[in-house]
Design a protein around this nucleic acid. Structure first.
Lengths: 206, 206
DNA sequence: TGTACATCAGTGAACGCGCGTTCACTGATGTAC
DNA sequence: TGTACATCAGTGAACGCGCGTTCACTGATGTAC
């Protein structure tokens, strides 16, 4: 066996990447050391040459799985024609392909629920990534990143994430398609004009 | 020990209810027979007098956890003043209290991701409940349940679900509050007028 | 150039703990007579 | 009314499998001399 200079770090990166995919697909509770190593073309014993424990790997997989939400959107916006930046983001997001690719898709619908009850460290990283994404969408839809633009962007992202999540749970039938289409329309309707935010009092109960 | 006539069925219902709470909070992989029975005031051995297996309980817990999304919203809409039906649903949903009560809260942000990769039976039940909820919101916001009204309602629900999910992951700080507020505004803006749905072509990629 | 040795990524057997499942038993009640 | 017995929800010890973790070993490479 010939080992290149950074063979080990490549192996490690491969394990983390596979773990991130499983994490988005199945959640951290369904990541097993032996399965993961087999996916990566290795045997389970070698795992501890790379990670201190399963817990440590999972924390790292979370950080890896969260990378680049905003970046991906920014690339789409930059490649779009003037005035079509938001449409590029939204129409690239709410697709059948993305719906059917949980492991390789956006972390927001896949990880938010687990992050909500996770460690403070994980949540902090999540918040930073989400703020980045909000800034990208705010810029694309309002050419501004003040608080009102951020709020509007947050709502647009919520619509995108909620639509993708519900479309996935609905399967692959008519309802799923209806949700994707309605989500695209609603997310894009937000950009029509800089609508002033109306204040509303939340009611009690849930 | 005195057993009332339907003591056993009450015990069983209590176990299922506790399982449904844990299911929304932690997911099915984190439901342990011993923990669950302890929560229900029993010892683990008695479990199999009520359920065939852990799997069978989890399936039942899913069905129980999914009940009454639409019903809860319908009650709120019915209790609201004319013209305020949608506001009653949205403002009752996107609250700090609901954000902080995952176990007792709506199943949509909590279970959608797991349903997406779950059994056909579970998904079928989910779809039925989601269609109910869409009909309730469509009626509240458009006084109609035709396809356009359903699409608009689906988008409103997606915004509600996405906002709650992201607000939970964001913790309890400013960002979380911003998301809740922006979600309320956006979900209610949908009802302003019966806006005709615009067709858009989805792009490739995700 | 050749020999001996250090290095090190990866292997796979073994260990032990946790958890789902089983089962003989308990103790309280209702019922037959 | 009293005695013997069937019933049955729940108990807790025990079992066995899966999985995280450890560890002695392998086999290929680079290096010292």
């Amino acid at each position: 066996m010939r080992y290149s200079k950074d063979h080990k770090s490549e192996t490690r990166a491969r394990i983390v990447e596979n773990a991130a995919i499983r994490l988005r697909e199945l959640g951290s509770a369904c990541i097993g050391v032996a399965d993961l190593m087999k996916d990566s073309g290795l045997t389970h014993g070698g795992f501890y040459a790379h990670f201190k424990s399963r817990e440590a790997l999972i924390e790292e997989a979370f950080l890896h799985a969260m990378s680049s939400v905003g970046e991906r959107w920014k690339k789409r916006a930059d490649a779009a024609q003037a005035g079509e930046e938001l449409a590029a983001i939204v129409n690239g997001y709410l697709t059948v392909r993305h719906r059917d690719d949980i492991g390789g898709g956006c972390m927001l619908p896949a990880l938010s629920h687990e992050v909500a009850r996770g460690s403070a460290k994980t949540r902090k990283a999540f918040v930073a990534k989400l703020e980045e994404a909000i800034a990208v969408v705010a810029d694309a839809q309002s050419h501004s990143i003040d608080r009102a633009a951020q709020a509007q962007a947050a709502a647009t992202i919520a619509t995108m994430v909620g639509s993708l999540l519900l479309a996935r749970a609905a399967g692959k039938g008519d309802l799923s398609s209806l949700i994707l289409e309605a989500g695209r329309d609603a997310a894009l309707a937000n950009s029509a004009g800089a609508r002033p935010a109306r204040k509303r009092k939340p009611a009690s109960g849930n």
